[in-house]
Design a protein around this nucleic acid. Structure first.
Lengths: 348, 348
DNA sequence: CGCGTGTAGGAGAACGTTATCAGGTCGTGA
DNA sequence: TCACGACCTGATAACGTTCTCCTACACGCG
């Protein structure tokens, strides 16, 4: 592959002149410029970004570490991020850490060695020393979706509590008194937040928080399937269940379908994270909608501002407010059928 | 950030010795090794992969260009790819080209300048000169999901024709004679392939291919919504519709739901690309399942073999065979209800 | 004529690593 | 004693850019 040296030789100028002509900085006569351009084209010259990074100290690359790109929520977040950073010429390094501390650490070491200009991360567990040291090294970091207590870095979050509160309040308003939750792992920020909000919302309404009605899942589909089954087999199952993420909701709905349980008559369902297929379910799924794309885009903008020193000083936090999208799975009756009667039917 | 020079100074050895000790090659006394290790730890030294790439001529990075990571199919493909390349220590650069030739070209230039070691691409349109020149430069390329006629590169594909054939044959076997298709853009490989297969399957069964029953969509959700509406408003709508990708299927099902059209009694639906939410629909969606993860993983393996010269010579093609997952939306009646009666009811 | 200024172009250092090569010091066998 | 290899080390040249000097010329002005 041709180097700038080759171009200079063919154009009969020095490397310095070739660089100026190609980079369009400094002085270069029109004639020289033309000869260099011609030579570059003839040699199929394409500048080596690695070498450029060497001297510039910037790689024009940002990394994003999420748990799993195959999860539509993160895929959408990543997409939003990508759109924003690309607009400023940055490439995106994608890292799936699977909520696994070792894998996260591996990726952190990798992106540090690659000297990425910035990092967007949805941190899994405890505060990683590597992450801290990257931050200390001056690399801007934006946390998304989750937040690490000790980390001195920007964050773009969803107001999980508000989202869950809206969902639970809505169920309570519809008359539900026994509301189960299939929550996420306690070790994850979102798992904790959503469970806490569930508890708070019940208490706020003067309802008891029954430990039996709290089942901790893994945020993966099979766990929704299994745990809703556990609810069904209880002596007094909940009349409504809140599922704390998208994948577990699929699992739960599958189990309910197989068991022939009618939604919402026998059990109402509200999910967290609205998906584009939610409206085509029967009944359409009520869910807390998180603006995933906007989350990623905002993280990208924040990161770019840090990179271009338009933003300096204390870490910023941006909070997005989720919206409860009420459809029918929560017990809201179709408009045609008029007002809902408060329900009280306990399944045997 | 500390350099190897700093480490050498602190450890009181030459740069060369420090490099040997850290890189564990060549000779270095146990004492020197220990001093270097200590110094590296003390200085929080982390080797600069950029500089290493300079001299090694390899970046330990591969790029993947897909149309849209927010599409669950590609998200899954990317995930499979990532898992494989990470296992050999490669990082993954994610590029969304949106089926847009300009954006694709932009990304191609970017990855060429970044000197990625390999490229996995789901090519959008015509054969790009940039792509060709990258190939000519010696960078291994693996095409996924689509294939460019003139490109001398490996490919990992889905047998689209077999998948569509199975779907259409199944509908015909169930008695359908007027089968509509909401196809993808003709300019895309998958769009063409799936439409061709639809035509072939009809002809093979001795059925006429009616131009009215072929609607070309965009592979995006709104287009499924709109086009199925067009079918519904026909004097004699099709009794079954085949939707050529996942997103358009969502749109189509939404429209059918809004219009109160019963599936499969009034219109049968078969989609391309099985999604994890397909079983929870009412009725559960019959769809052609593509092994997205495996596709990405196979592309990764192929690329790695090229990178390590375990595989040389002529381009390889790996073809995955999709599977028709028969559920109920195609008119297969629930077991309880017994055999289906051949349908003929025309909607007005 | 001297001097400043705008333009043009070249030499060479720098970025941080790895690789090559030459120069040491041993111990060992002839 | 010498030759030879194994071991250890350091100097230095790459890799391909960008950037900082430096020189040189032409021109206008006092």
């Amino acid at each position: 592959m041709a180097t700038i040296r080759d171009v200079a030789r063919v154009a009969r100028v020095s490397v310095a002149t070739a660089a100026r002509a190609l980079g369009e900085y400094g002085y270069a006569s029109a004639a020289a410029r033309a000869r260099v351009a011609r030579a570059a084209r003839a040699l199929d010259y394409h500048p080596n970004a690695i070498a450029r990074s060497m001297i510039k100290g910037r790689t024009q690359t940002v990394a994003v570490i999420v748990s799993d790109n195959a999860n539509p929520f993160f895929a959408t977040v990543v997409r939003g991020l990508e759109d924003v950073v690309l607009s400023k010429g940055y490439a995106l390094l994608l890292c799936n850490a699977d909520e696994n501390a070792d894998k996260e650490a591996l990726y952190l070491r990798m992106v540090r060695q690659k000297r990425v200009d910035g990092l967007v991360i949805s941190p899994s567990g405890g505060s990683s020393p590597t992450l801290r040291s990257i931050r200390a090294g001056g690399t801007p970091i934006v946390q998304i979706d989750r937040r690490l207590p000790g980390l001195h870095a920007d964050a773009v979050l969803i107001d999980n509590r508000a989202g869950v509160r809206a969902a639970i309040r809505h169920l309570i308003a519809r008359g539900h008194r026994r509301i189960g939750i299939i929550s996420g792992p306690r070790r994850l920020y979102t798992g904790r937040e959503r469970l806490q909000a569930y508890r708070a919302a019940l208490r706020e309404a003067g309802l008891a928080v029954e430990p039996d009605l709290i089942l901790e899942g893994t945020f993966k589909e099979p766990s929704g399937y299994e745990l809703v089954g556990r609810f069904l087999s209880m002596r007094r199952p909940p009349t409504a269940v809140f599922v704390a993420n998208n994948l577990m909701t699929i699992g739960a709905l599958l189990r309910l379908k197989e068991a022939g349980v009618r939604i919402p008559q026998e059990i109402a369902v509200v999910g967290f994270d609205d998906m584009d297929w939610a409206p085509i379910l029967t009944p359409p799924l009520t869910a807390v909608a998180q603006p995933g794309y906007e989350l990623g885009a905002a993280a990208g903008r924040l990161l770019l501002e840090r990179l271009h020193a338009q933003l300096t000083g204390r870490p910023q936090t941006i909070v997005f407010h989720p919206k409860l999208v009420v459809r029918e799975s929560c017990g809201a009756l179709p408009a045609a059928r008029g007002r809902a009667e408060p329900e009280r039917r306990a399944r045997s």
